[in-house]
């Protein structure tokens, strides 16, 4: 009985640490959670110099059901970004006058 109680946790510990001991997996963690290296940096290109057009010129390329992220600037100027388009870029570095902001998706 005494042996069993000792054996179980020892085996569990070995199994949990074995891959590291053999150098098979190098897990990178931040605050205990794995950070997955999925793609090279900038493979998904952020937009740094966004070109903006007026709504009347956007009608030809925007669809009614297309989801957008909308934002209103300090001077009341409204601006929006298509979520479908953001799938390709994830980040837009933009500004309202001297107030820089970024859209993240």
């Amino acid at each position: 009985m005494r042996h069993r109680r000792l054996l179980v946790p020892t085996a569990a510990l070995w199994l949990a640490t074995a891959p590291f001991a053999f150098g098979q997996i190098a897990e990178d963690r931040i605050e205990g959670d794995v950070i997955h290296h999925v793609l090279p940096k900038d493979r998904i290109p952020a937009i740094d110099e966004p070109q903006l057009v007026l709504a009347r010129d956007a009608v030809e390329f925007m669809r009614d059901d297309e989801p957008v992220i909308g934002v209103v600037g300090p001077d009341g100027q409204a601006r929006c970004y298509s979520a479908w388009q953001l799938d390709l870029h994830e980040i837009v570095n933009d500004r309202f006058g001297d107030q820089p902001y970024m859209v993240t998706w």
Partner: peptide, 18 residues
């Protein structure tokens, strides 16, 4: 977040990412 249709109804003068 909302659909383009709903957004442009509220902000007809909106700018849009080209």
């Amino acid at each position: 977040m909302m659909t383009w249709k709903e957004w442009v109804k509220r902000y007809p003068e909106t700018q849009v990412l080209a």
